[in-house]
Design a protein around this nucleic acid. Structure first.
Lengths: 236, 236
DNA sequence: CGGTTTGTTGAGCCCTATCAAGGTAGGTGG
DNA sequence: CCACCTACCTTGATAGGGCTCAACAAACCG
């Protein structure tokens, strides 16, 4: 984990940059800074001004806002190959969230100026950037939908299904991408409630829980429980 | 309300298009369709594919998602001079929300193709587009924050302060941009709860309510109640 | 193996939704 | 101009989902 990073190569593997020419990649990579974070380390606080956006090479970063009392709500968990901070850069305003490493992580910081000239230079890149932000926007809209008209159980099931990808059938094993505390916050639940909901699903025979490893035993059945029509998917 | 619209002129007044040249405006306006909606009319349903994005010339449009049972949650109220649908266009995917006129409204539909060529042609426009989406993204993040760690009263106060702009002091009079039902949904409340909270604030002497017209009597004081530190901003 | 973080379990409560009536206002037709 | 109608809004009673507080168990780590 201590050898230098082949920055151009790393960038060219990202969805966002896949169709860029080598010369353009090289341009973006200019001034790019490697940033290594220890688990728990804070990258920037809420209110920070960014002079670039971040690409997660490996590790995982959480984005969260914190209320004065120390309540914290995780908005997003950013994993390898994803990026964050673009919106803040384009708005040229302070970040509404703080950013903290969930594990030891390696990031790249792409300079704002390079991003801007890349947009000026390549309108296809600009469009891809627009599409990327749009996807994120829709993700947030989906979050709002979940928070608004779904119960704790339904939110958890939705989250698990998203983790699972979209396989048709069979046993699905998956590992939670973070501690249950963090997952709970991401789902807008308290750790206690998450624990109870996991047990409830487990008792119903829909999943098996072993630490951070979860097996979905019956994906068809669990989908039904996740649907908005089951009045309340709690076992009395 | 029935005379033809000077489309280029209308467009050039929008924040998004203000710095475009006349020729560019003219280009965008090509194929632009005027759309007149009666109050309550649905523009498109959840799942619709859009071949352009919409600009609200006058009136108001709500964006909402609907659950199978007919529950509806208003995500956004789009008013004159604002636009919507860009993200759906860039993603080239079905819309996650439905769109319905809150009052008689006049819209412009800007063709997707024109938008794309405008981006190709003018990178400053592309950047402004990116900034616009970023602002919307941050608005949604703020929404998530409000839903997550704020009470009904705090959400309402936040909403009122946003409507008020950001004046320092004095009496502030404002009118709700939609029916209380719609506002309630926007704030993720039931109409009943909204009614109660309005009364509670009114009883505390912080606001005066008269139909859709609300007067904030003490903005400094109400700001405190909106802060996350007041344990629970209910009377007694 | 102690200490610390993380997760579980239980009891109680509070906020907000739900259900059910009643009230008001604005528009329409007689 | 009034009576009616239909949204819209209010008010009350009730209940429930998830949070809080508190204690305990387990897992992780040095």
């Amino acid at each position: 984990m201590d050898k230098p990073v082949d920055i151009p190569r790393t960038l060219s593997n990202l969805p966002l940059f896949q169709q860029l020419h080598d010369s353009e990649i090289a341009h973006l990579a200019t001034d790019a800074r490697e940033i290594r974070l220890d688990k728990g380390q804070i990258l920037f606080q809420k209110g920070a001004i960014l002079d670039g956006f971040y690409v997660v090479v490996c590790g995982a970063i959480k984005l969260a806002f914190s209320s004065p009392q120390g309540n914290e709500k995780v908005v997003s968990i950013v994993e390898s190959g994803q990026s964050f901070g673009e919106a803040v850069v384009f708005m040229e305003r302070p970040s509404p969230v703080l950013s903290q490493a969930l594990e030891d992580s390696l990031l790249l910081l792409i300079a704002k100026q390079r991003l801007f000239t890349a947009i000026d230079h390549d309108s296809a890149f600009a469009r891809r950037m627009l599409a990327g932000l749009s996807i994120r926007l829709h993700g947030l809209i989906e979050d709002v939908e979940h928070y608004s008209l779904r119960s704790a159980t339904q939110r958890l099931i939705g989250f698990l299904l998203q983790l699972a990808g979209a396989p048709e059938s069979g046993l699905i094993e998956l590992a939670l991408p973070a501690s249950k505390q963090v997952i709970a916050s991401r789902l807008n639940l308290t750790p206690e409630t998450l624990s109870r909901v996991l047990h409830s699903l487990s008792d119903s025979g829909l999943i098996t829980v072993k630490g951070r490893h979860i097996t979905i035993t019956d994906i068809g059945n669990i989908r039904q429980h996740g649907d908005t029509n089951s009045p309340c998917a709690k076992d009395h």
